[in-house]
Design a protein around this nucleic acid. Structure first.
Ligand code: MN
Ligand code: MN
Ligand code: ZN
Ligand code: ZN
Lengths: 142, 142
DNA sequence: ACAATAATGATAATTGTTATCATTAAAACA
DNA sequence: TGTTTTAATGATAACAATTATCATTATTGT
């Protein structure tokens, strides 16, 4: 699962930016890597308090942002809801389908859509950076 | 441009919901129809204060939501930024390309992407409702 | 060990949105 | 045309997520 590599990458990234490796940063990455997908700052904060009592919410938030900056994590913003984060390292790009009624949140991918989106962006003088999720009503449970 | 029709539609929608047509609602729709695309609540509020002094921010906000409900308007949420609204009546569906650096905000449409997105949603037991914009870096000015 | 300074954690500030509520005013009705 | 009902309004407070502030702590290079 490459947890060790991820830690090295982050550690290097931090050092190369002139920042410092801290106990908290290590704990945050460790717990983040062990967490499920699409978690919020609060989710991670709550998981961490058990193992790293005293850790601050702002620290978790700041470091999730830093993880995104390093390329290891990915932020998913859904409307006005809390931001969600997922591991990017070792995971392929995918889109998300989100039910506006029950919250069902799944991952999907269509290579043709991806290519067409990139072309459309480029045809309009945009360098594609990211694109957002689709919303719908799930026909499945919940 | 169908301003009169839009007003009738809204007026009817309001009446049929058991709501009331008010001076403010009329002014809000009128000014909204005369405004540019992708405006915020605040934009519209500021435009309105000139012609309808004393109008409240909450009233503008509430009625923009109501306009969306009626199908005349469309809300565009970009990340955590303020919601933007555009006229839907008489306008075709389109996507948006937004520059994360300069804010360039353009409308695009690719029928193939639309169809593939719908299929992908349906294949995953979702009834498509809406989908979000793409972000990139504009190679053009600003 | 020391000095320099980044990181932390508590908390306050900010921002967009939504709720509250006393007052006003549509619109149905007498 | 009054009267009554109740939705709408507008001012303001509440909320929720994010971000900023700042005194204190801790990492890193010397
Ligand atoms: Mn994609
Ligand atoms: Mn579309
Ligand atoms: Zn995902
Ligand atoms: Zn548009």
């Amino acid at each position: 699962m490459g947890k060790a590599e991820a830690k090295d990458i982050f550690s290097d990234y931090v050092r190369e930016k002139g920042l410092r490796n801290t106990r908290q940063r290590e704990a945050i990455l460790e717990t983040f890597l062990s967490s499920g997908k699409h978690i919020t700052v609060e989710d991670l904060y709550n998981s961490l308090r058990r193992k790293t009592p005293g850790i601050g919410y702002a620290t978790v938030h700041r470091n999730l942002k830093l993880l995104c900056e390093s390329g290891l994590a990915n932020e998913i913003k859904v409307g006005t809801d809390k931001a969600r984060f997922e591991i990017k390292y070792g995971h392929e790009h995918h889109d998300h389908l989100i039910c506006i009624r029950c919250g069902r949140f799944i991952e999907v991918k269509d290579e043709r859509i991806e290519r067409l989106q990139d072309k459309l962006a480029e045809a309009n003088d945009f360098v594609p950076v990211r694109h957002n999720k689709c919303f719908g009503r799930s026909r499945k449970g919940a």
